[in-house]
C-alpha cells in the first residue's frame, strides 16, 4: 500500500516536472514542441469548421424574417448611394492612375506590394474568457508561418502565433499579450497599442507611451508604424475613444476603439509575404 502511494506521488511529481519543462520549451515559438499541438488541431479543425459554419448559418436564419423590411428600406438607400459612389469611383480611378504614375516617378515602394492577401475563416475561438486567441482555417499547408499579420478590409486584427498544418492560432490585438507599435496619423507620434484585460470585454484596447507634447484628441486615427518589422506600415488600428491620465504618474494613456469589430469577426485576410516573385521583381528593376 505504501509502495503504491509512493509510486503515485512519484508519477505526479514526474508529470508535473515534465509539463513544466514542456511549458518552458514551448514559450520559444520555433521549438518543435509546438508541432505536437498540430496533431490534435489537424483532427479538430474539420469539426470546428463544420460547427462554426452551422452556428453562423443558424444565427443568420433566426434573424431572417425580421430583416426583410429593413432590407427593403436599406436596398433603396443603397441604390441611391451606389449612384453617388459610381460617380466618385470614376474620379478615383483617374486619381489612381495619376498616383501610380507619380509614385513610379518618385520610386516609392508600394505599401502592400510585397504581400499576397490570403482569405481565411475563423473556425474556433478561445475556450476561456480571459484571452483572445482564435483559430483560422489556413495553416502551413497554405504557406503561413508565425508572425504573419492578420487584417480585414477595415483594419488590423492581429498576428499568427502558431501555425499548424491545417489551422493556425491568431492572437488578436485586444489580447493582453499583444503589443503593436503604432503611430498617431495626424501628428506622426510613435505610441504603443496594447491589449487590456478589463477593456477586452468591450472590444477595446489601450494606447501607452503617449509623448507628453503630443496633440491628441478623441477621434484621432491610429495606424501601425512599421517599427518592429511584423506589421507593415499604415494599417489602420482604430480611433481614440478616450484620453485619460494616470493618477500616480504624470503620463497619459488612451482607450482605442479598434476599426475591426472583434465580436462579429468571421473572415480575415492573412498577409503573406511574396517570396517567389521577389527575384523576378528585382530582375525587372535591373
Amino acid at each position: 500500500m505504501l509502495r503504491l502511494f509512493k509510486s503515485k506521488l512519484f508519477i505526479l511529481v514526474l508529470t508535473t516536472l515534465v509539463i513544466l519543462i514542456v511549458m518552458g520549451v514551448s514559450t520559444n515559438q520555433n521549438s518543435s514542441v509546438n508541432q505536437f499541438g498540430n496533431v490534435l488541431s489537424v483532427i479538430l479543425s474539420p469539426g470546428q469548421k463544420f460547427l462554426s459554419y452551422c452556428g453562423q448559418k443558424m444565427e443568420g436564419s433566426f434573424t431572417f424574417f425580421n430583416d426583410i423590411k429593413a432590407v427593403k428600406k436599406e436596398n433603396e438607400e443603397l441604390k441611391a448611394r451606389l449612384d453617388q459612389l459610381e460617380k466618385e469611383r470614376i474620379e478615383l480611378e483617374d486619381y489612381k492612375v495619376k498616383n501610380k504614375e507619380l509614385r513610379e516617378a518618385l520610386n516609392l515602394k508600394d505599401q502592400f506590394g510585397d504581400y499576397v492577401f490570403l482569405g481565411a475563416n475563423i473556425i474556433a475561438k478561445d475556450p476561456g474568457n480571459w484571452f483572445d486567441v482564435f483559430n483560422i482555417d489556413r495553416g502551413s499547408k497554405d504557406g503561413i508561418s508565425s508572425d504573419y499579420p492578420v487584417i480585414t478590409s477595415k483594419g488590423l486584427v492581429g498576428k499568427v502565433t502558431t501555425p499548424g498544418l491545417l489551422s493556425s492560432k491568431v492572437i488578436a490585438i485586444i489580447d493582453s499579450d499583444s503589443t503593436v507599435s503604432a503611430r498617431i496619423s495626424k501628428t506622426r507620434d510613435l505610441v504603443l497599442v496594447r491589449g487590456d484585460l478589463s477593456l477586452k470585454d468591450q472590444g477595446l484596447c489601450r494606447m501607452d507611451y503617449i509623448p507628453p507634447d503630443a496633440d491628441i484628441a478623441v477621434g484621432d486615427t491610429i495606424e501601425t508604424s512599421g517599427v518592429g518589422g511584423i506589421f507593415p506600415k499604415g494599417i489602420v488600428i482604430g480611433k481614440v475613444k478616450k484620453v485619460l491620465q494616470d493618477n500616480s504618474v504624470m503620463t497619459r494613456y488612451a482607450v482605442i476603439e479598434p476599426a475591426v469589430d472583434f465580436k462579429r469577426l468571421e473572415e480575415v485576410l492573412v498577409l503573406k509575404e511574396k517570396v517567389e516573385n521577389k527575384s523576378s521583381e528585382t530582375g525587372n528593376v535591373k
Binding site: 508529470t15 511549458m23 514551448s26 499541438g37 479538430l44 475556450p127 476561456g128 484571452f131 483559430n135 492572437i171
Partner: peptide, 17 residues
C-alpha cells in the same frame, strides 16, 4: 484546451491535472 488556444503548451494541462 492548450492545443486549441493556449499560448504555451502544458499550462491548462497542469491546472486541469
Amino acid at each position: 484546451q492548450d492545443m486549441i488556444a493556449g499560448k504555451v503548451i502544458g499550462f491548462y494541462a497542469l491546472l486541469g491535472l
